[in-house]
Amino acid sequence: MLKIWSMKQAQQKEETAQGPAKKKKVTAAQLRVQKDLSELALPQTMKTTFPNPDDILNFILTLTPDEGLYKSGLFTFSFAITQNFPHEPPKVKCQQKIYHPNIDLEGNVCLNILREDWKPVLNLNAVIVGLQFLFLEPNASDPLNKDAAKDLQEDRDRFRRNVKTSMGGGNVRGETFDRVMK
């Protein structure tokens, strides 16, 4: 039916000697995450935890900014990666209720590469750098928490005070936030 096989044999013979594997294979998504993990360059301010070390598609990222308005806070993000990775971006959520213009009270994050600008060439490192950037440079023009964005835009000092209050577990504009001090 096919002449293909003769081409196959003309090809450099591969080292495979004992035929293909019959057992369950590592999936392409797992392979890609493993590769991304091997290339992770985490600074002192970040670390990962794997609740189930055998499952690399679900993990927690802990972020402890050492500069900026969120300095000395401790924030955790859940990463959930599907078998569609890297066609689909990882699903990332902040696990604390925090006061941040780009993160809502449910923990949803407005970061372009987590949604509309995700591309399969991006990796986990890019996402993690993006999250870190949100804490160094909160951005009032992409608001997910409108009140926080408004504060940041109108009065940076008020915003700074509100960040401090909220991180201590205090109340800002009638919302009580989680205490996130290290």
Binding site: H87, E88, V109, R115, E116, W118, P143
Partner: peptide, 12 residues
């Protein structure tokens, strides 16, 4: 890619 709208657009 699935066309996606920024979360902040949805929210605001």
């Amino acid at each position: 890619p699935r066309a996606a709208v920024p979360l902040c657009t949805l929210a605001t």
